[in-house]
Simulated scan of single mutants.
Amino acid sequence: MSKPLRLGITGGIACGKSVVATYLQQRYGLPVVDADKLARQAVAVGTPIYQAIVDRYGGKICRSDGTLDRPRLGEIVFAQPQERQWLEAQIHPWVIAEMERAIEMCDQPLMALVIPLLFEVHLESLVDRIWVVATTSEQQLARLQQRDRLSGHAAAQRLASQLPLEEKIRRADTVLWNTGSLAELYHQVDEAFSSLGRNGKGG
């Protein structure tokens, strides 16, 4: 069985990657693998990675039901780069292995992989085409603060942990600008999807 054409969806934090992926899934029936969702599975209660995190930070990193207190963990790792590197070293290999397994198991000609840190983790070889979802820096910061209920300082820390959006745009095959209405974004997705062509070329 030949591998499917792999469409990599990335971009800045809070730019709308999941919105694009959900639309592709609902409008075109594309199988979607989301690295963020896999990362949450990786740290579910009882997994080896969950246990390693609890061993490192203690019970204070857990909520009353035993699940990880993700906001508290975020405060630690985004304030201390070495801690973020440690956490990513636990999670990324498992997530990458799961994405590779999903590619092998896919029986469709085209699939989408949502990988927020595609460039940062050097996963370009995992995909055939790269779509970057982008917005203005002002919109990005406002959306991030609203979505995750973060202070301006905490939001800026998260933005600083990623490759600048301008660099991601430069490396993209296609840029989708999420600066207006959903209808405008969906129109760009439709155009980009049609330009892939049946064999995935073009665009």
Score class of each variant (00 low, 15 high):
175 V>E: 03
150 L>N: 09
33 V>I: 13
104 E>K: 15
101 R>L: 10
153 H>Y: 14
44 A>L: 12
53 I>A: 05
56 R>C: 00
130 I>G: 00
167 E>G: 08
65 D>M: 06
84 R>P: 00
161 S>I: 02
202 G>C: 11
15 C>P: 02
82 Q>E: 14
142 A>Q: 12
61 I>H: 04
85 Q>F: 05
170 R>P: 03
3 K>W: 14
143 R>T: 12
54 V>G: 03
110 L>T: 09
81 P>G: 05
195 S>H: 15
116 P>F: 02
160 A>W: 02
32 V>G: 01
26 Q>H: 11
86 W>L: 01
126 L>M: 14
131 W>Q: 00
69 D>F: 05
102 A>L: 00
104 E>H: 14
103 I>N: 03
94 W>I: 05
36 D>C: 06
89 A>P: 07
102 A>M: 00
37 K>C: 14
34 D>T: 02
35 A>E: 00
34 D>V: 03
68 L>V: 07
134 A>F: 01
15 C>S: 15
82 Q>D: 13
168 K>G: 02
101 R>Y: 07
51 Q>E: 14
140 Q>N: 10
183 A>Y: 06
201 K>N: 15
162 Q>T: 03
44 A>K: 12
150 L>H: 08
103 I>V: 13
61 I>K: 08
202 G>I: 10
88 E>R: 08
47 T>I: 08
171 R>V: 09
137 S>V: 12
169 I>P: 00
5 L>E: 11
88 E>V: 04
197 G>L: 12
3 K>G: 15
123 L>I: 01
1 M>H: 14
179 T>L: 11
114 V>K: 07
97 A>P: 02
191 E>W: 13
92 H>Q: 11
8 G>D: 01
179 T>P: 01
10 T>Y: 01
166 E>L: 12
123 L>S: 12
